[in-house]
Amino acid sequence: MSKLRLRTAALASAVAISLGGIAAGTAQATTAAPPAPAKAALTSSGTTVLGNSVLGMNQSWASPSGRTVLTMQGDGNAVLYKDGAAVWASWTVGTGHHLSMQGDGNLVVYTWNNIPLWSSGTSAHSGAYLSVQEGNMVVYQSILPLWWSDFYPQVAEHPCGTYPHGICP
């Protein structure tokens, strides 16, 4: 046999073995599905997101009616929408990767390699949780609100223009 025919036969065998593995269910996937958003509990006052919950890109948590939605967009920006209109944003376009409601009570947008870009500034409140309500989202410690999105609404144009991560100089 010529070298070309031997290489072709070897390649055909490798393909057949790979396809056989797929058919037999033994092949390993090379890409993982995106993680499912952490479970959130619906209550009459809002959707409760407990500590150690992560929202990946293109995933959302919604209020009980579904009219208010917190989305970690594919562009890296965490945005709260009410009736389809943006009412708050993290201003992390192009750099954000996931939103985390941490066990220490801090709501944080991170890069893909876990560098914090934006936070609610509510760390050191173990047991705090996020509530997605109608037109608002609130970080609570028990019944005490620690941070809420309409306290510093960030819509339309950011007051600091194009400064990185919405931080004013």
Rank of each mutant, 00 (worst) to 15 (best):
N58T: 07
G46V: 12
A78G: 05
I22L: 13
A40L: 07
G56Q: 10
A156T: 13
Q102E: 06
A62M: 10
S63Q: 05
N58V: 09
H97F: 15
Y140Q: 06
N106C: 09
G51E: 09
A23T: 08
M137Q: 06
P153F: 04
G127Q: 01
S131E: 10
T95W: 03
A89S: 12
D104N: 11
T30M: 10
P116D: 01
M1N: 02
G20K: 11
Q73F: 04
M101R: 01
S142W: 07
A89I: 04
V155K: 10
Q28A: 15
S65L: 03
G166F: 04
A16I: 14
V79S: 04
S119V: 02
S60V: 13
A78Y: 00
A85R: 14
V139T: 11
G103H: 06
L6E: 11
P169W: 11
M101Y: 02
P145F: 05
Y129C: 01
W88I: 09
T162N: 13
V49D: 12
S13C: 13
G94K: 10
V69T: 07
G94W: 05
G84D: 04
Q28W: 06
S131A: 14
G76Y: 07
V49R: 00
S123T: 08
S2R: 10
G20H: 12
T48G: 00
A33F: 10
L107G: 02
D150Q: 15
L42F: 09
V139D: 02
H97N: 14
P35R: 12
T111W: 13
V79W: 01
Q59P: 04
A156H: 09
Q59E: 12
